[in-house]
Design a binder for these strands. Structure first.
Length: 476
RNA sequence: CGGGACGUAGCGCAGCUUGGCAGCGCGCCUGCUUUGGGAGCAGGAGGCCGGGAGUUCAAAUCUCCCCGUCCCGACCA
C-alpha cells in the first residue's frame, strides 16, 4: 500500500501513483491503456481548457477518419521516413486480404492535406483554421502509461495560409497563447518555449516549436509541439491556390498538438511521496469532506451541519464531495484522498462542531488548520486559488533551482547526471556537437530561443564560435 | 530490437537450490465490535503456479520452446 519514494525509485513511484490513484491501467494489447474515470475526468478538464482557447483564437473543430490509404502517407518523403517504423497497417478486412493496405493514422497531415487540396482554390479560401480531437496509433518500442502509449488521445490542429509569415505566426500563437496558457494557468506547470534543433524536428516540418516542462526527477517532458510546415505538405498533396496577384502558389501550413501525455506531466511535476497533487483548476474533486463521529447522535449532528455547508459550496461553484462511506475509518480516507491529489480536505467531527469550526487540510502544503464553519463557502474559493498559485510557484522554484549554466563541458556532463535539470549552454549549431552530448550524457537539446539573437562566446562542446544558447536535458 | 529482472489468489510476495497436500500479508464476503492518520475478533470465498512439450511413480519446483510484464538503452506527443 505504501508508495515507493520519489527519491528512491521515480519510475516505480510513477506507476504506483497512476494505478493507486485509479488514473489508468495497462490493457491487453501491449502499450495500450484503459483510462479510468478519475484519470479521464482530469483529461477532460485539460481538454476543455485547450479546446476553449483553440476556439477563442478563431479555430473550428472537425473530424477526419482513423484510416488512411497507405499510398497517401508515402507522398511526403521525410514524413513517411519519420513515421513508417511506427505505423500500424491494416492488411486484412471483411475476411479478405486488402488490395491496398490501410494505415491507422499516426497523425493526420496526409489525409487532411489530401482533402485540403479539394477545398482550396483561391486565396479567398484561406486561411483554413481547423482542429480535431482524435486518437492516433504509434507503435512505440517502449510504452509508459500516459507518457508514451501505443494509442493516445490528442488534438491536432492543421491550418493552411496564404503566406509563410502567416503560417509561422499561427504556429507561434498556438504555442504562446493556447498551449502555454493552458499548461501554466490550468496545469500550474511552468514551461520553457523554444525551437527544436533539426534532429528533433517533426518529420516534414520546416520548424518545430515546443514547450518543455521539468519533471521532479530532473528530466524534461515535451509537453506540446507546434510546427511550421512551410509548403512541404502543400507540394506533396498538390494544394495550390490562385493568389491576389493572379499567380498560382502552394499553401503554407502549420500543425500542432497536445496529448494525454499532459496527464503524465501533471503527475510527475506536482506529485509527492504521498501521491498526486492536483491543481484545483483541473481537480475532478476540489474539496472532499470527511465526517467523523462515534454515535448515531454525533453522526446526525455532523450530517446536519454539513448539509447547508455543502449546498453553499456547490452554489459557489466548488466541486465538493462528502466521503460518507461507512466501511472505512477516517485515517484510511485521509490517505486515499491524498493519494488521489484532492486539493482540500475538510474534517468535521464533534470537537469541531462544538467550536463551530472545521479542520481544513491543504494537500499542497500537507498542513491542517481550523477554520470557522460560518462563511466556509466564501472562504474556500480563495484557498483553492492559493493552492493553484502555490503549486505553480513550487514547480517554478524547482525549475529555477534545477536550471544550470555550466562553464565547461565536463561540468555539463556532471550536471546532467547529478542532479539533472535544464542545462543552458552555448552551441555552435553543428549536429556533431549535439550528437556528442547525446552519446556522452543522453541529454538532447530541448529548446533553442524562439527568436534567435546573436551570442558571444564559444560552443561548450567543441570550443568553436557559438551561434545560439541551447537548453539541454535528459528527456522522456 | 540489445542488456537486466520477473511471471504462483484481485494486489504484493514466499515456496523452486534438494520434485511429494499450493502457502503468507493485504484486499474481498458474512457477523459483531469500532470510527480525530491506513481498526479488532470470529467465520468464509477465491488458484490452468503465464502457455506448450519433455523427464519422472510424481513437476509450481528439473529440461527445452514459446508468450507476456517491468527496468535500462535506441525511437517518440
Amino acid at each position: 500500500m505504501a508508495l515507493p519514494k520519489q527519491s528512491e525509485d521515480f519510475p516505480a513511484w510513477y506507476q504506483a501513483v497512476v494505478k493507486g490513484a485509479e488514473l489508468a491501467e495497462p490493457s491487453l494489447v501491449r502499450g495500450t491503456m484503459v483510462i479510468r474515470p478519475y484519470g479521464f475526468a482530469i483529461w477532460e478538464r485539460i481538454q476543455q481548457a485547450v479546446d476553449r482557447r483553440i476556439k477563442e483564437t478563431g479555430h473550428e473543430n472537425l473530424y477526419f477518419p482513423l484510416l488512411i490509404p497507405s499510398k497517401l502517407l508515402e507522398k511526403e518523403a521525410e514524413h513517411v521516413e519519420g513515421f513508417a517504423p511506427e505505423v500500424a497497417v491494416v492488411t486484412q478486412a471483411g475476411g479478405e486480404k486488402l488490395e491496398e493496405p490501410i494505415v491507422i493514422r499516426p497523425t493526420s497531415e496526409t489525409i487532411i492535406w489530401a482533402t485540403y487540396a479539394k477545398w482550396i482554390q483561391s486565396y479567398r479560401d484561406l486561411p483554413l483554421l481547423y482542429n480535431q480531437w482524435a486518437n492516433v496509433v504509434r507503435w512505440e518500442l517502449r510504452p509508459r502509461l500516459f507518457l508514451r502509449t501505443t494509442e493516445f488521445l490528442w488534438q491536432e490542429g492543421h491550418t493552411a495560409h496564404e503566406t509563410a509569415e502567416e503560417a509561422m505566426a499561427e504556429a507561434r500563437t498556438i504555442l504562446e497563447r493556447v498551449y502555454r496558457e493552458t499548461v501554466e494557468d490550468d496545469m500550474a506547470l511552468p514551461v520553457r518555449l523554444g525551437r527544436k534543433s533539426a534532429s528533433q524536428r517533426f518529420p516534414g516540418a520546416v520548424e518545430t516549436l515546443a514547450m518543455e516542462a521539468l519533471m521532479r526527477d530532473g528530466r524534461a517532458l515535451q509537453a506540446g509541439t507546434s510546427h511550421y510546415l512551410g509548403q512541404n505538405f502543400a507540394k506533396a498533396y498538390d494544394v495550390k491556390f490562385l493568389g491576389r496577384d493572379g499567380k498560382e502558389d502552394y499553401a503554407w501550413a502549420s500543425s500542432w498538438g497536445v496529448s494525454t501525455r499532459l496527464v503524465g506531466g501533471l503527475i510527475m511535476a506536482h506529485g509527492d511521496d504521498a501521491g498526486l497533487r492536483l491543481p484545483p483548476a483541473l481537480a475532478p474533486i476540489q474539496v472532499v469532506i470527511v465526517p467523523i463521529y462515534r454515535t448515531d447522535e454525533e453522526k446526525a449532528a455532523v450530517t446536519e451541519s454539513l448539509t447547508p455547508a455543502v449546498a453553499a459550496l456547490k452554489a459557489a461553484g466548488v466541486r465538493v464531495r462528502t466521503d460518507d462511506r461507512e466501511e472505512h475509518r477516517p485515517g484510511y480516507k485521509f490517505n486515499e484522498w491524498e493519494l488521489k491529489g484532492v486539493p482540500i480536505r475538510l474534517e468535521i467531527g464533534p470537537k469541531d462542531l462544538a467550536k463551530g469550526e472545521i479542520v481544513l487540510y491543504r494537500r499542497d502544503l500537507r498542513q491542517k488548520s481550523p477554520v470557522p464553519l460560518e462563511g466556509l463557502a466564501e472562504y474556500i474559493p480563495g484557498v483553492l486559488a492559493g493552492i493553484q498559485d502555490e503549486l505553480f510557484a513550487q514547480a517554478l522554484a524547482f525549475r529555477e533551482g534545477r536550471t544550470f549554466r555550466p562553464s565547461s563541458y565536463e561540468e555539463l556532463k556532471a550536471l546532467v547526471k547529478d542532479p539533472g535539470g535544464f542545462i543552458e549552454a552555448l552551441w555552435c549549431g553543428r549536429p556533431s556537437c549535439e550528437e556528442r552530448v547525446k552519446a556522452d550524457t543522453k541529454a538532447t537539446i530541448r529548446a533553442l530561443p524562439l527568436d534567435p539573437a546573436p551570442v558571444q562566446g564559444l560552443c561548450i562542446v567543441c570550443g568553436e564560435p557559438a551561434t545560439e544558447l541551447a537548453v539541454w536535458a535528459q528527456a522522456y
